[in-house]
Design a protein around this nucleic acid. Structure first.
Lengths: 217, 217
DNA sequence: GTCTATATCGTGATAGAC
DNA sequence: GTCTATCACGATATAGAC
């Protein structure tokens, strides 16, 4: 798709200037998709603008025209992935409590069919802890929000405030299992059963938490 | 320590040729330490031989003289870390069963005082899933061995064969929690309590496993 | 065993033509 | 909006002097 035909539905004669911002938006999205793939396959440091540009069918100068710098491109990739996720959550109303926890398992199940996204996330999250990585703030914030969401769901499920430190620790643990399993699965997909293992751990944690809260609320 | 004095205890006159292989071994160890630090702080791709050499007090050509290439240096770093761990395990006899699981918690506790090692491990493990990363085989094998060890300990603890798939899944999960918590902790040390959280999860998993095995052995 | 010097390459970024 | 051309920089690796 490197030709420059008019967008479908546009009138002849008005084609070129009709919706320039629309074609630009398409290009940007194509670049974002390519960048997501490359950063996932090679990491941020090792991924190159030239490779991203080649996938889209332009030169690396074209990529920089749209995003200014490699760093801004990375942040756009991460923001874009969040937007997509939010859209999906907005369509169906957001699950709460135990349903939210089941939703995590369903996500793990879905992830077994899209190793690209999983790898992008896993590689960039770990890479972000180095030096002054551009995505460091992003992931710090992301984990904080995620811990809050999982703690809310756990609190609702076991009947304890989400601020209870045992609940918060359990939330950290569930997120940690998801991330840790992803790395193991990426290295050895046949041995590691992500969704089943996650289901098992969540059940074990909820059960243990329930007991603990019942004993000393 | 960039001077070239004779090793302590060597006789005058025989100093220079006395134990050349010993000084070389010291140099190699110094390079390994520096490389461990740099690869941890910056990742493998982003870490540079020049920076490693500067820490040791030589040029990057000197580093290459000892290790041949950057890739071989990385593999030497990983092998060296394993040797150190094995030595420590060989000194005290290896803990088994529930004691081995407690040993994992103790390790997590010790890790809170050495973020450098933790970061090296976390960053390299995730980076290793990319493309044809030189450490990919190393980490694949490492996870396999680790899963086996934890499964052995779990099997002994709950009275089930280590080959039981529920036991293996539980072993994957425990390793995943350790790794996932490390990333969260590196990004936000104040919020994430590694050892306590790990203890909680291991207890929950063991308890759940015990129940499951008792129901259907 | 370590140095200096150099080869070779790839990177991100900029400038200006079209 | 995308191109070509070029820049400045840093990387790994090699060759040869000392």
């Amino acid at each position: 798709m490197t030709t420059t035909e008019a967008p479908p539905g546009s009138l002849p004669g008005t084609a070129r200037a009709a919706r320039p911002q629309e074609r630009t938006a398409q290009r940007r999205r194509a670049i974002l998709d390519a960048a997501t793939r490359v950063f996932g396959e090679r990491g941020y440091n090792n991924g190159s603008l030239v490779e991203i540009a080649e996938i889209v069918g332009i030169t690396h100068a074209g990529v920089l025209h749209h995003f200014g710098s490699k760093e801004q491109l990375l942040l756009a990739v991460l923001a874009h992935r969040d937007e997509v996720d939010i859209e999906r959550l907005a369509t169906q109303q957001r699950p709460v409590g135990a349903e939210f926890l089941s939703h995590l398992v369903a996500t793990a199940q879905a992830n077994t069919e899209r190793s690209g996204i999983v790898q992008t996330y896993a590689v960039l999250a770990a890479e972000s802890v180095t030096g002054d990585h551009p995505a460091q703030e992003f992931f710090r914030g992301r984990f904080a929000v995620l811990r809050g969401d999982v703690a809310d769901a756990l609190g609702l499920t076991v009947g304890a405030p989400a601020s209870d430190e045992r609940v918060v620790a359990a939330a950290s643990a569930i997120i940690a299992v998801m991330d840790g399993l992803q790395v193991q699965w990426l290295l050895d997909a046949e041995t590691v059963a992500m969704p089943d293992t996650l289901r098992f751990v969540i059940d074990a944690i909820v059960e243990s938490l329930r007991r603990s809260v019942a004993a000393t609320p």
